[in-house]
Computed example of a mutant assay.
Amino acid sequence: MRKKLNQHLFVYLLILSLVITLGMNVQPLNNTSENHVLDVPERNVVSAISTEPLLAPTKSSAITPIPISRTSTIPATSAIAPIPADPPPIPTADIPAPTKEETAITEELVHTYEVTAFYLNVRTEPNAKSAIQKVVKQATRLEIIAETENGWLQLQSGGYIHGGYAKKVKNEATILSFSVTDTRQPTIEIQEIGAEQALESETIDELPDEEPTQPTSIVESESGLTEEHIAKIFEGTALSGEDLEQAILEIEEEYGINAYFTIAVMKLESGNGKSRLAKNKNNLFGLNAIDGDKYNKAFSFETKGDSVRKFGQLLSRNYVGKGLTTIEKVAKKYCPANSKWPSLVKSIMKSDYRKL
């Protein structure tokens, strides 16, 4: 009996020594000196269970081996490497916040106008006596930024045109312009469909410095005359110094009435500005001077320039507008009593052309 107890005791001591030896050989995972990434199972507890007997039975032994099970538990905190969080943002140099002045955006509403006159003067100031910068053709589209009280339009590119000879295009666009300290590019905000056409860059066709064109029988045509040319034509007549040059060019610009023709009719009907109607009523064309009581029925005008503008309006509406586009056709209605009227007008036109 004592011998069996000693054997059992020996077995237990042997088992105990094995357990101690195994425990000393297992090192904690969190004491490793190298930063390795560990492959761990999904569960946080790792169990190692052994059901094998420690000692195989022998024939000479009557001892029944006792199954030994050992469970080793590794804490999750020491076995699983923590998942790194999102990397911190890379530090950048301090960038000063833009000032209000740098980020300010100026919104400027630009209106687009289309020239209605055949030729329209672009002047340096909003008045008819200022110098002519350029000349633009009919249907040219101009960008207008302001309108003066007296009806002149200021161009975005500089200069002025008279508002009576240009019409506003319906579609408009807002131009956003940034301050000089802003590095962004200006953008265009389209307000209405189809406004792209109105945003075409302003085209100013400057007429070449050429001689005036030779006059013809076509009433609605281009003369190529300037104020200087007309002033030269009026030299030595009572029409000189009456500031008629601009009015003559205005009706050519607005209605297409050739300036040579206007001057010739004016000279013929007013006797070069010396007629009674021209002196007393500023009527240079005998407008409404009906037979029987010509003087009293004739129109009166505040200035001779007003007489020119009325002539252009009536000729455009009642003559050219109704198909009377040549001097001969106009004569049949304008002065039917004088069969020589067409030839006299054309003769004056040719004479004036030779003066230039």
Rank of each mutant, 00 (worst) to 15 (best):
T303N: 09
F311A: 03
K294A: 15
I248N: 02
M266T: 08
K297G: 01
G312N: 04
I290E: 07
N283W: 01
D291N: 02
L239T: 07
N272Y: 15
F285S: 07
E253M: 10
E242W: 02
D243G: 07
K281V: 01
Y260R: 04
V308H: 08
A264S: 15
K267A: 15
N272A: 09
L284P: 02
G286D: 00
F311T: 03
N283H: 02
G286I: 06
A278C: 10
E250V: 15
N283S: 04
D291L: 00
A278K: 06
L239R: 13
E235P: 03
F311V: 11
A278L: 11
N258C: 13
G312R: 09
F311N: 06
I257V: 15
L315Q: 00
E235I: 11
R276N: 12
F285Q: 02
F234P: 05
G236Y: 12
E235R: 13
G312H: 06
I257Q: 11
K274D: 07
G305D: 07
T262F: 03
E269V: 10
F311C: 05
K281T: 01
K274Y: 10
E254P: 07
F285L: 04
E245R: 04
S270W: 02
A298M: 03
K304P: 09
Y295A: 05
I290P: 00
F285R: 05
E269P: 08
K304I: 07
A259N: 10
L277M: 13
